[in-house]
Design a protein around this nucleic acid. Structure first.
Lengths: 315, 315
DNA sequence: CTGAGATGTGTAACTAGTTACGTAACTGGT
DNA sequence: ACCAGTTACGTAACTAGTTACACATCTCAG
């Protein structure tokens, strides 16, 4: 095993797979020669798909063998030149180019079958002697990645580690600027800032906290990266509002954590339900609310011109 | 799984490995981006080998990561241009170019370590959930191939199947031409044909069979592809001579089978030992005899000018 | 000490794939 | 009937590696 793989750990799995696959493939040409099959190893996948005499289009071949159509197009061109296959336009559809083996191509079949039988037997043998069956291992790994690909898994890991660095703290006056800045930022991005916004953002203590509300600040490595407010409408009913997360911290799922934190606070304060008003235009936000458990309701008309949707959740 | 792999069986293992490895690698760039590591994924192996601050030559790097030195040379050139590493001639030896990370390169390390930790954990997790551990499976497979590579194994399989088609029959007059042709062919290739050759080859019945000897012909798909003679020197002592295999059938191990066949015949006829005379120049032949059990002896001087070695085996 | 062969590196040309793009043919809604 | 979008294909340009070759430097036997 290469020094790299000894030291790198399994993070280099992809690299190792590719390299090992290539080293196996390197022997292929000698094998073809041994059996007298007059074929370039890279033709193998195309040849194999056509070997039972069927005709296939370029695209169908590409799909079946996992290459780009461009690659298949080139391979077919070479094979045609070597007299191994031929192609013709299919009558019904002037676009598709149907490819099939020529007689000469079919003549390779007998030798090829002998070869593939032997190779199969050798590989089968090697696999059987291993504790971990390489073929099955790939199948299993691929299957797992089909459910959720590698990148998503890594992203989740990344996110959950980063989220551990996020803390939520109660509003203090020193956060007043951060609170308004974060909100002005996103409101200005999608709408015009309205008077009703300005009032609350500039005097949160007066309009939110003193009326029994609550404001949380999200801190990430001691930077304020998000904020959210609970406005008290009655002892049992709070409004979730002024949620804002800075672009620099997007993608860490801070919004979600912040939201859950707010629901928890509402619950602790005796709230039974939390509602919010938003705009269907803000798809990511709406999805976030849904994920938090909010469901659309028909509520009383809102003083905000941009409000088209109301949602609620019990806590 | 692709249709190709479903149908092809495990003969396409190499192809599948490479393809799967590539598909994993394709996600790498996004991962680097996610963690803010300013690095081209293809730099990874070089970066990794240098990450502990050590200096390495191009060739040493190439060896460690399993690339050609040319590839490493290109990667280092790119990394140098990006300011990630630098290289300088080593004082003792004007040829070697020692490469190490720059400060900027080392700055990537922290982020890289975070990333590799997460990736490692995710892959480890996936492997642990599989019945067949992909990483271990490759290690095992590689280990097996180290002992004997894939091509050798296939060749053996091929050979043993082809050998089943070889039959040995006793000399008849209809084989007289084949017997002499096969021998003249190889003798002429290495030496001048001598009178003592001519006598026996042209009248095998008289000089070999009638004196209690034996001649076998090797048939492969009804073609005579080889021959060999036993010359009786005494009731217990035979000479193996006139062994010839046609070029068209080389590589199938026919010589070996033919030799064993002759020893068997000698044994059945009451022989206790078989000797032969040959020339050290004919390395493949000598190796073949060794494989059959023959050992070098010092014997009586031979009438053949080309004979430099005598070998014997008990049967 | 000197010349033949080995070693280390860089560059050029090749290889087996890819993505990007252009063109022609088909399809489906008005 | 038509045109906007989709599909099939081929070609060109790119990519990440390779092998082949050129060249400088080193090593060591005579």
């Amino acid at each position: 095993m290469l020094k790299l793989y000894e030291e790198s750990g399994k993070m280099a799995l992809g690299s190792r797979l590719r390299q090992f696959g290539e080293s196996l493939g390197a022997e292929a040409e000698k094998v073809y020669q041994l059996y007298g099959v007059q074929m370039d190893p890279k033709w193998f996948p195309v040849f194999f798909m056509l070997k039972d005499g069927s005709c296939m289009s370029i695209t169908a071949l590409a799909e079946a063998i996992g290459h780009s159509h461009a690659s298949v197009s080139k391979i077919v061109k070479e094979m045609t030149k070597a007299g191994m296959c031929c192609s013709e336009k299919v009558p019904g559809d002037g676009r598709v180019n149907q490819v099939c083996l020529t007689e000469k191509g079919k003549q390779q079949l007998e030798k090829f079958q002998r070869q593939s039988g032997d190779v199969e037997a050798v590989v089968q043998d090697l696999l059987a002697q291993s504790q971990n069956d390489l073929w099955e291992a790939i199948t299993e790994f691929e299957y797992q990645l089909e459910e959720k690909n590698l990148f998503s898994r890594i992203k989740e890991k990344h996110q959950s580690r980063e989220q551990a660095k996020v803390k939520f703290v109660e509003f203090e006056d020193k956060y007043a600027k951060a609170f308004s800045d974060l909100n002005y930022e996103w409101i200005g991005k999608y709408f015009d800032v309205e008077e009703s916004d300005r009032v609350m953002l500039d005097a949160p203590r007066e309009y939110i906290l003193d009326n029994g509300g609550y404001i949380a600040m999200a801190l990430y490595e001691n930077e304020t990266v998000g904020t959210c407010a609970l406005i008290k409408h009655s002892d049992e009913r709070y409004e979730l509002a002024k949620m804002a997360v800075d672009d620099s911290a997007k993608g860490l799922g801070i919004g979600y954590l912040l939201g859950l934190h707010m629901l928890e606070v509402a619950n602790k304060r005796g709230g039974k339900s939390v509602f919010l008003e938003s705009n269907t235009k803000l798809t990511p936000a709406i999805n976030l609310y849904k994920k938090m458990g909010f469901q659309r309701i028909v509520g009383e008309p809102s003083p905000y011109a941009r409000c088209y949707i109301q949602m609620e959740v019990s806590v």
